[in-house]
Design a binder for these strands. Structure first.
Length: 542
RNA sequence: GCGCUCGUAGCUCAGUUGGAUAGAGUGCAACCCUCCGAAGGUUGAGGUCAGGCGUUCGAAUCGCCUCGAGCGCGCCA
């Protein structure tokens, strides 16, 4: 049990003697910002003022007499009724042993028994990934890491829309580009993809197959679609692997369309009375639930809207036994949430079993000017371009370090500068510094007790290290990757400050050196674990 | 028009179950390498928390209104 938990129990016990009933979970205690306010502070007295009909300060004064714990050095009442707790230095230091013993597992919370499915990226295999996908990938993968670290069983999933209009346009575009290579003037439709990536694929096909697919017939058209999808999808998978993103499962729309799943589902919804026909199309009565408009599921021409197979896909995910589905989507999909929740309710599921992780648009700036992106023209900065230019670590860090609710202004000049301006280097450098110190000081035994760590900077680091598990918890609850990034930057800053103010390896003070190296080792482990959550490497040398 | 998200330092952003003097990075100004990695550190200037009203011991945080930005409101995906 860590210090914070011990402190909570002690406060709860003390409060009970005054007739204040709180559970350790309800109790709010905060890390004090100002060292003069101790290590932890509680506002319990102020919260209880109304209930007890007493002044907060009076309650606080009674409370500090009632609270006893071996880890507490001193308790004070301050300001309008805060209770400040000063912990004994040796109890702060005990975290070092915990961290070194747990190693890579430090910060891993006990199993919750919850199964969570996170769907992210899910880009159509019709072209290069753009920076919106980069944000989805960085945020989605980091959310998965956080949820896992918080004790959940997580499945990372990618839904492949390999049917419908867009892939038809891909096939048509490829066919035109292929014929163009044989001197036939291409004839593109309005929504075709005319980017360079399609030309590349056409060239590849020509090399492999020569003029075998030149004739414009049903069979060849289908071939172009499949060939195009395969090539584009392979590129996407490669891009994601290079980005450190590994999916546990790819679900294909074509599989959903294969059997009678869709027909069966429509029949189920009709039997329940949730559908009706209008103007030759079939509508789903989502307004019976959370939606503000009924949605078509079968068009007048008999084909399905995107929504229909997607309903089946989400039913399928629920049937696989997940307690929670998270879809990471761009802001332009937000209106989709109530639609899908309504569909889940029609099958008797809790609407809160699905949530959307929405992220706002990415704007790219170069030379101070916004760069517009277009997947169709292929002139945009692609995901691949960015990662190869800036590096995986920096991109993942940068894209996960901001709340998805905010617009992300990505400065190409800054990101490509590969200089100290990039915040990821600062954190990695702190790690490398620790590794270097441990190597230089290898002759000294590591003191894991933390007992002789006494100065203020050491206490600050110890408190930050001890905060790691609770940071994981709040970050998981809020699905907030940026909290991890903030944590890392704070810890890295503390390490750099410590390094510059204290001589860590001092051959005239072997005992102190051992203690300081214990702190450095614990810091390094925690920093590495935190960086791993963002998918960023923690190099020993840079 | 309706709905959702956002508005905090010159810039990019933290501050989210309401807490003590609103923070960090970057940029700007001035400093620090006889010493374990200067890819670092120290100090300073810089704020009407978009604006207004309200709720209470206490509001950047909660409620209402106004202004501004983005997105959604397809038989597109």
């Amino acid at each position: 049990m860590n210090n914070e938990e011990l402190l909570r129990l002690a406060i709860v016990e003390g409060a009970k003697t005054l007739g204040i009933e709180v559970t350790p979970e309800e109790l709010t205690i905060d890390r004090s910002k100002d060292p003069a306010h101790g290590d932890y502070a509680s506002n319990l007295a102020m919260k209880s003022a109304k209930l007890l009909h007493k002044a907060p300060v009076a309650i606080a004064n009674e409370l500090i007499k009632a609270i006893h714990s071996p880890i507490i050095e001193k308790i004070e009442v301050a300001g309008p009724g805060f209770i400040n707790f000063f912990l004994k230095k040796e109890s702060l230091g005990s975290i070092i042993k915990t961290i070194i013993e747990q190693g890579d597992n430090y910060g891993q919370l006990p199993p919750t028994g919850k199964k969570i499915n996170v769907e992210y990226v899910s880009a159509n295999p019709t072209g290069n990934l753009h920076l919106g996908h980069t944000r989805g990938a960085a945020l989605g993968d980091t959310v998965c890491n956080i949820l896992e670290k918080a004790g959940n069983e997580v499945t990372r999933e990618y839904y492949v829309n390999n049917c419908g209009n867009q892939v038809a346009h891909l096939g048509h575009s490829l066919g035109e580009r292929y014929r163009e290579l044989f001197g036939i003037e291409p004839n593109f439709d309005k929504d075709d993809y005319i980017g360079n990536d399609i030309i590349e694929i056409a060239k590849q096909l020509k090399e492999e197959a020569g003029d075998r697919y030149l004739e414009d017939n049903e069979e060849n058209r289908a071939f172009f679609v499949q060939y195009g999808i395969d090539k584009e999808f392979a590129k996407i998978k490669k891009d994601m692997e290079d980005f450190g993103v590994h999916f546990d499962k790819f679900s294909f729309e074509s599989d959903i369309r294969k059997g009678t799943t869709i027909e069966d589902t429509i029949k189920y919804l009709s039997d329940k009375g949730y559908t009706y026909s209008m103007d030759g199309a079939t509508f789903l009565k989502t307004t019976d639930f959370l939606d503000d408009k009924d949605r078509p599921i079968v068009k007048a021409d008999g084909s399905y809207t995107y929504f229909m197979p997607d309903i089946c896909y989400h039913y399928n995910k629920m049937e696989r036994g997940f307690d929670l589905l998270i879809d990471m989507l761009g802001a332009d999909h937000f209106g989709y949430l109530n639609r899908m929740r309504s569909a889940l309710m029609m099958k008797g599921y809790d609407p809160n079993a699905i949530e959307f992780g929405i992220y706002q648009i990415v704007r790219v700036y170069q030379n101070g000017v916004e760069v517009k992106m277009s997947k169709r023209t292929g002139k945009a900065i692609t995901h691949r371009d960015l990662v190869s230019e800036v590096g995986k670590d920096a991109v993942r860090y940068y894209f996960a370090a901001r709340n998805g609710d905010s617009h992300l202004d990505f400065n190409m000049d800054l990101a490509t500068s590969k200089s100290k301006d990039n915040p990821v280097y600062y954190s990695q450098y702190a790690h490398a510094r620790c590794a270097s110190l441990l190597q230089i000081g290898a002759e000294f035994p590591i003191d894991m007790t933390g007992a002789s760590l006494k100065n203020e900077k050491e206490s600050d680091i110890l408190k930050q290290l001890a905060d790691f598990p609770s940071m994981i918890e709040s970050s998981a609850n809020l699905r907030a990757p940026y909290k991890v990034a903030n944590y890392i930057e704070k810890l890295a800053a503390l390490i750099h400050e410590y390094y510059s103010s204290v001589k860590i390896i001092d051959r005239n003070d072997p005992k102190g050196t051992s203690a300081r190296l214990g702190l450095i080792k614990a810091s390094m482990i925690t920093l590495k674990n935190a960086l791993a959550i963002l998918g960023v490497s923690a190099p020993d040398k840079m």
